[in-house]
Computed example of a mutant assay.
Amino acid sequence: MKPIENSTLPACKENFVQVGETSLYTKLYGKRNNNPAVIMDAGYGDYSKAWEPIIPDISKATQVLVYDRAGLGKSSKSTNPRTSIHMVGELKELLTKLDIEPPYILVGHSFGGVNVRIFAEHFPKDVAGMVLVDTTPEDYRERFLPTMSEEFKAAYDQQFIHEGNYDEFMESLNQLKGCNRKLEVPVMVLAAGKKAHYSKESQELWNAMQRELVDITTNGELVMAENSAHYIQNDAPDVVISAIKRLLDGL
């Protein structure tokens, strides 16, 4: 899905940062204002433009970093496997090179939620809170995908051409299954309540699986975006903005 264009974005600092053999494109908005920086990780095949609807509001409160993962947007490709462990390592190095001090509020949409959860597992002291925006659960393939139509499954399998392949995506979910740390930071789980092509039963299962994500932390909350499809930041940007601001206000 193409991100909504936003012509009212505030000024930002654009950089290409060398991370290993890869040049990652970054955009840095706003100032810290004694708040944690907000780091946003887009969904599979998406890049920094996916976050444009919410950047103006959040950048008034703190520093916001959006970036293009390797091989997407303006970033160059990487020979590293396109699995979450490698992406998280690249993000960690990127933040160090940009001199953005932790802790961070991590915001991940869809597959980006897999990445930020793995980041929190490996670098817990760097994380002040997380917002998971309709993120992919680790048991998606085994538990949810079998409930969908054959047409949906075929379309799902064929999407893995933009960033890594099917096996690498599934390996990322396997990596997530190894995350056993109980987080002690606030986590807002945002779930889309009107998913495209979902039956009533599939939507109810999705809601239940999103509700279970609250249990990854001692301080979690589920927020249903009842009338939103998968891209909550497009369909209901105020829901995402409110969740991030609640974390900022509570720290």
Rank of each mutant, 00 (worst) to 15 (best):
R69L: 09
T22G: 11
V131D: 09
N115W: 04
G112M: 02
P53M: 00
V114R: 01
L24A: 00
N80F: 14
G73P: 13
F111N: 00
D41Y: 14
G71A: 09
G43Q: 13
T79H: 12
K60Y: 01
E101W: 02
N34D: 15
N115M: 15
Y67A: 00
D126C: 02
P124R: 06
P36L: 05
F123N: 13
E52Q: 15
A70K: 08
L24K: 00
S110W: 01
I39T: 07
T22V: 15
F123A: 11
N35E: 11
T136Y: 05
K31R: 14
D57G: 01
A120H: 09
K31H: 15
T96V: 10
S48W: 05
K92G: 01
I105M: 04
V133N: 11
L65P: 04
I58G: 12
Y44F: 14
E90P: 03
H122I: 04
G108Q: 13
N35W: 07
S78L: 10
L72N: 06
T62N: 13
Y29S: 07
T83I: 15
D126P: 05
S59N: 04
P124N: 05
P102L: 07
E138R: 04
D99M: 00
T79N: 05
I54A: 02
V64K: 00
G71E: 11
T83D: 09
L98E: 11
V66E: 05
S75W: 12
L72F: 10
S23Q: 09
G30N: 07
K60Q: 12
G89Q: 13
G45L: 05
M130K: 08
Y104T: 03
N115Q: 15
R69E: 03
Q63A: 07
D139P: 02
R69A: 07
K49F: 14
D68F: 12
N34W: 09
T79P: 01
G113L: 10
A120K: 06
D99N: 06
I39K: 03
E52S: 15
V127L: 04
S84G: 14
S76L: 03
F111P: 01
